[in-house]
């Protein structure tokens, strides 16, 4: 009885995660420029990954309570992968957005652009000893 309820919860979480991942692909096709595509590509994949990882952790805990020795290892490693995704995904999006703005891509249809016209700051000066 309990295991069937856990199975249904796992299926619902998987469905929500896959829906948001599909939304990321669709948004990547429909939006007009780089910045709005980054909105779709970053937020939706991170949120979908949270739900899919949650379902996998739940299934691993269920396997562990049923006596399989792989279950706990599966749950712990999936939590590690989730933390890696949560830290790296927005930072990568930030790097791409900054590179796009410095290489001269303008936001389409922007009503205001405070960063416009500022000279690209030179990258932080290297230490003198580094380029010997």
């Amino acid at each position: 009885m309990l295991s069937e309820i856990v199975d249904i919860i796992v299926y619902i979480l998987l469905a929500i995660g896959v829906f948001f991942n599909l939304l990321a692909g669709l948004g990547l096709l429909r939006f007009p420029d780089v910045y709005t595509r980054l909105h779709a590509g970053t937020k939706c994949t991170t949120f979908g990954a949270i739900f899919i990882c949650g379902s996998i952790i739940l299934l691993g805990l269920k396997m562990w309570f049923q006596g399989s020795s792989d279950g706990s290892v599966l749950a712990i490693h999936t939590a590690g992968a989730l933390i890696a995704i949560l830290i790296t995904n927005p930072t990568g999006a930030h790097a791409i957005a900054r590179a796009a703005h410095r290489s001269g891509v303008k936001p389409v249809g922007a009503v205001v652009d405070d960063l416009e016209g500022k000279p690209a700051r030179k990258s932080a000066p290297m230490k003198k000893g580094a380029d010997k």
Binding site: F31, P32, Y35, T36, H101, P107, V108, G109, A110, V111, V112, D113, D114, L115, E116
Partner: peptide, 8 residues
Amino acid sequence: KINPGIVK
């Protein structure tokens, strides 16, 4: 519907 911009 979008109405984008870059603010500080």
